[in-house]
Design a protein around this nucleic acid. Structure first.
Length: 489
RNA sequence: CGGGGUGUAGCACAGUCCGGUUAGUGUACCUGGUUUGGGACCAGGGGGUCGGAGGUUCGAAUCCUCUCACCCCGACCA
């Protein structure tokens, strides 16, 4: 049997790239740095969307949609914001093509130049705050809590499927509040929503914390984030939630009349997660046989593979399968019966492993005779035989067990590869091997130097860090707690 | 934008240094048969602007010039 994908331990990058392609998730598009998300990959994204969307609604948000194009002038209204995004914007300058006079196909019509160029949104703060100016007049209009599912474009110099593509899909929440406290609470709430989603649906343990000034979102007062460890021990930022203060309110003149009749600027937040989560899901759990999907996000949770010689046998198996399928579907479990005659059982086993289907039921003549089925779980590849009548109950338990066990595996992996460093020499050695908690003097300067010398960055200042007096590993200056360092994507 | 690498069938690649029949292998695809509890086997078959343009030559996938695209490493990256 030829290996479907290269070994993870030999070449992590290649393994990831090939896995994304071979499992039918996505491929490079003809447009530089963009990707085509294939049906199976999109089905996983849809499962993510569904769960997240429900969580947003449960926390009082509504969906809306804003334009893809942003007038160039909007972007420059917030000074830090334009600074942060200017270098990676796609710009629309013309609105018409024409046939080339020399017969060389179509060319841009120079007469169709736009008065003001349009930016393809790299994020929607500006265009949304421009609307909010009209939507908000009174404290009665607040809080305003909107989410949008959309695509955005950032012309990154170097791209990677799912992790950093020129165009990507995401959701972005944008809220406006009457008080600072309420906005800060919203920022925290949404970070917790993301952390819950990562841990309970993606089975991915995360570290919650706040970014240092140098990693902060352009235009934010504070950026909160969740950071996860991938199987190559590098960190991946899996979601961010920004407290915007009154920065965008001031830039777009969004004021409300308070109960006391005074004009006040509103307080803002924004938060988002993207198709990058797909990359996180793949890199966190998959093995050399393919994807390992946590049951809650698997488009197909159970696949049933018949093993038969004659049509008569297949008919008998189908009868049994219909019974099992019905029971499973009643429990809300998604089932696929792959009775295609064009592929052999062995081929199907390998294929569904590559696609990360959590549980597989095989039924053959042997089982028909004994009234049993064979059940294999994707994460450990263990196989076991069960009585027919116990199948649905067992599968239901198995899926729950797998969800927690995949999480537990990722968590213990992270634990095994997390260290504390108390000197710079120790730090340099340990940061090659995973996450490192170390003391830092709190300055940009020190952070930059450590990054330049080791390639490691401060992923976040964890919320749950313990109070501990110490000395900065680089300068020896006093510090009141450890921060999380790692090499990152 | 710098450094390195690769463009040959749907996919993965050999052939290029040292030019020479009709451009090859694996896999995938099609047909027929035997198979079916871990990516089956046998036989037959289809599929190529050798990334593109120009040049050298009797003759170019191979040599020369230009060009385009992609990948990896860096710079950049809410």
């Amino acid at each position: 049997m030829a290996k479907a994908i290269p070994s993870r331990s030999e070449d992590y990058s290649l393994w990831y790239n090939e896995l994304v392609k071979k499992a039918g998730l996505a491929e490079n598009s003809p447009v530089r740095g963009c990707m085509v998300i294939k049906p199976y990959g999109f089905a996983i994204w849809e499962k993510m969307q569904q769960a997240l969307d429900q969580m947003f609604k449960d926390t009082g948000h509504e969906n809306a949609y804003f334009p893809l194009f942003i007038p160039k002038s909007f972007l420059s209204k917030e000074a830090d914001h334009v600074e942060g995004f200017a270098k990676e914007c796609a710009v629309v300058t013309h609105y018409r093509l024409k046939n080339d006079e020399n017969g060389k196909g179509v060319v841009v019509d120079p007469d169709a130049k736009l008065e003001e160029e349009l930016i393809v949104r790299p994020t929607s703060e500006t265009v949304i705050w421009d609307s909010y100016k009209n939507w908000i007049q009174s404290y009665r209009d607040l809080p305003l809590k909107i989410n949008q599912w959309a695509n955005v474009v950032r012309w990154e110099l170097r791209t990677r499927l799912f992790l950093r593509t020129a165009e990507f899909l995401w959701q972005e929440g944008h809220t406006a509040h009457a008080t600072k406290q309420e906005a800060v609470e919203e920022t925290e709430t949404m970070l917790n929503v993301y952390a819950n989603f990562a841990e309970n649906f993606m089975a991915l343990p995360v570290v919650k914390g706040v970014k240092t000034a140098s990693e902060r979102f352009a235009g934010a007062v504070d950026t909160y984030c969740i950071e996860a460890m991938m199987q190559d021990k590098k960190a991946l930022q899996a979601g961010t939630s920004h407290f915007l203060g009154q920065n965008f309110a001031k830039a777009f003149d969004v004021k409300y009349a308070s109960k006391e009749g005074k004009d006040e600027f509103v307080w803002g937040t924004s938060w988002g997660v993207s198709t990058r989560l797909m990359g996180a899901l793949i890199m966190a759990h998959s093995d050399d046989e393919g994807l390992v999907l946590p049951p809650k996000l698997a488009p197909i949770q159970v696949v049933i593979v018949p093993i038969y010689k004659t049509e008569e046998e297949l008919n008998k198996i189908t009868e049994v399968v219909n019974g099992i399928s019905f029971e499973l579907k009643e429990k809300g479990i998604s089932v696929k019966f792959d009775n295609r005659d064009t592929h052999k059982p062995g081929w199907k086993f390998a294929e569904y492993e590559l696609k990360g289907v959590p549980a597989r039921i095989a039924i053959g003549p042997r089982d028909l005779e004994n009234g049993t089925v064979e059940i294999a779980r994707r994460d450990t590849k263990e196989k076991s035989t069960h009585k027919l009548e116990e199948t649905a109950a067992y599968i239901s338990e198995l899926l729950e067990e797998m969800q927690t066990s995949i999480y537990a595996k990722a968590e213990s992996f992270r634990k095994e590869n997390t260290y504390e460093a108390d000197s710079y020499d120790e730090f340099k050695e340990l940061v090659e091997k995973g996450f490192v908690y170390a003391h830092w003097d709190g300055t940009d300067e020190t952070e930059d130097k450590i990054k330049a010398e080791t390639k490691a960055t401060i992923r976040c200042i964890p919320f749950d860090r313990k109070k501990e007096e110490g000395k900065c590993i680089y300068t020896g200056k006093p510090s009141s707690g450890r921060v999380l360092f790692a090499k990152a994507y």
